[in-house]
Amino acid sequence: MAETAPLKRPDRDGAPDDRKREPLWRDMLGECLRERRRDRGERLSDTADRAGVSPQYLSEMERGVKDPSSEMIAAVAGALDLTLIDLTLAVAERVSANSITACVGTANRAAYALAA
């Protein structure tokens, strides 16, 4: 569902590894917002009304189509009874979990090399 941008980290030989992909912030933000809204049993229009945005705009945020301003993010977070720091931490955890999953193969090889 979420598109990713290439992660340009050098490999052991110094060349970037284009096989690794890092998720986009807006995709992870949207997933967190949608999950929180659904956990609360709310419709798009309910949350959008409280945030002062259109349901279409909120839908676009949730799908990762929009790159919302910090003011828009704060408004939607507030409508979902989240602080901006709580939302930011939730998104960071998703990004981190995604990055760890993408690098598991490399980490396993490193562990085997250390064990040898």
Rank of each mutant, 00 (worst) to 15 (best):
C32V: 14
I100E: 12
T4N: 12
E3Q: 12
R38M: 06
R12H: 11
E62V: 01
V91T: 06
L80Q: 09
T88F: 05
R37G: 02
G30C: 04
R94C: 04
E35C: 02
A113C: 11
C103V: 10
R36M: 08
S69P: 06
D49H: 03
D86Q: 15
L87K: 14
Y112C: 11
L44M: 08
M72T: 12
L44G: 10
R43V: 09
A92G: 04
K66L: 08
R34N: 06
W25D: 14
C32Y: 02
R19E: 11
S70L: 04
D18G: 13
S45L: 05
A5L: 06
L7T: 12
R50P: 03
V76I: 04
E31S: 10
R21N: 13
G105C: 02
E62C: 01
S70G: 10
K20Y: 02
P55N: 06
D27F: 02
Y57N: 07
V53R: 01
L80P: 11
D18Q: 13
K66A: 13
R40E: 14
L87M: 03
T106D: 06
A116F: 06
R38F: 02
P23W: 00
D86C: 15
D67R: 08
A77S: 06
D39H: 07
D11S: 13
L29K: 11
V95N: 03
A97P: 14
M28Y: 01
L82S: 05
G41M: 02
I85S: 14
D67E: 11
R19Y: 04
D49E: 14
D46R: 03
A116W: 10
E42F: 03
L33C: 02
V104C: 06
G78M: 01
T88S: 12
A107V: 13
V76L: 00
L114E: 13
E60Q: 09
G14K: 11
E42Q: 14
E31R: 07
Y112H: 13
A116Q: 11
T47P: 01
R26D: 06
L33S: 09
D17W: 04
R40V: 00
A48S: 07
E62G: 03
S96P: 10
G105W: 01
L7G: 07
D67C: 03
S69G: 09
L33R: 08
E3N: 12
L7S: 10
